[in-house]
Amino acid sequence: MDLTEVSQAQLNDIARLLNQRLRKTFGWHASEEAMVQELNRFIKKTLHLIFKL
């Protein structure tokens, strides 16, 4: 497939669809959801260390 014929908007749509797929590796969450959960855990842990909550 010649990707020069695919628009950036189409590539963005493909990336979005792939990132929204549920994955067994992430406990049947989408990779976007898994990333948000991981960032929230990191922020909570970091705040705990900074403020000794």
Rank of each mutant, 00 (worst) to 15 (best):
M1A: 01
M1G: 03
D2F: 02
D2T: 05
D2K: 02
D2Y: 01
D2E: 07
L3E: 07
L3H: 14
L3N: 12
T4G: 10
T4P: 13
T4L: 04
T4W: 15
T4A: 13
T4V: 09
E5R: 12
E5H: 13
E5C: 05
E5M: 11
V6G: 00
S7E: 01
Q8E: 15
Q8C: 05
Q10N: 12
L11E: 02
N12L: 14
N12I: 10
N12Y: 15
D13G: 10
D13F: 11
I14R: 00
I14F: 01
A15K: 04
R16S: 13
R16F: 14
R16Q: 13
R16I: 08
R16L: 08
R16Y: 11
R16E: 08
L17P: 06
L18D: 13
L18I: 08
Q20P: 06
R21N: 09
L22K: 11
L22T: 09
L22G: 03
L22N: 04
R23Q: 10
R23G: 08
R23V: 04
K24N: 13
K24Y: 11
T25S: 07
F26V: 03
F26P: 00
G27T: 00
G27N: 02
W28C: 01
W28A: 00
H29V: 01
A30L: 00
A30V: 00
A30D: 08
A30T: 03
A30M: 03
S31G: 03
S31E: 13
E32D: 10
E32Q: 15
E32S: 15
E33W: 01
A34I: 02
A34K: 01
A34Y: 02
M35H: 12
M35L: 13
M35C: 06
M35E: 03
V36W: 03
V36R: 09
V36T: 14
Q37G: 06
Q37L: 05
Q37N: 10
Q37Y: 09
Q37C: 03
E38V: 08
E38G: 09
E38N: 07
L39N: 10
N40S: 09
R41T: 13
R41K: 09
R41V: 06
R41C: 07
R41L: 12
F42Y: 14
F42K: 09
F42M: 14
I43R: 15
K44Y: 15
K44T: 11
K44N: 12
K45D: 08
K45G: 11
K45F: 05
T46E: 10
T46G: 15
T46V: 07
L47G: 05
L47C: 07
H48Q: 09
H48E: 10
L49I: 12
I50T: 11
I50G: 02
I50E: 09
F51E: 11
F51M: 09
F51R: 07
F51C: 06
K52H: 11
L53E: 06
L53V: 12
L53I: 14
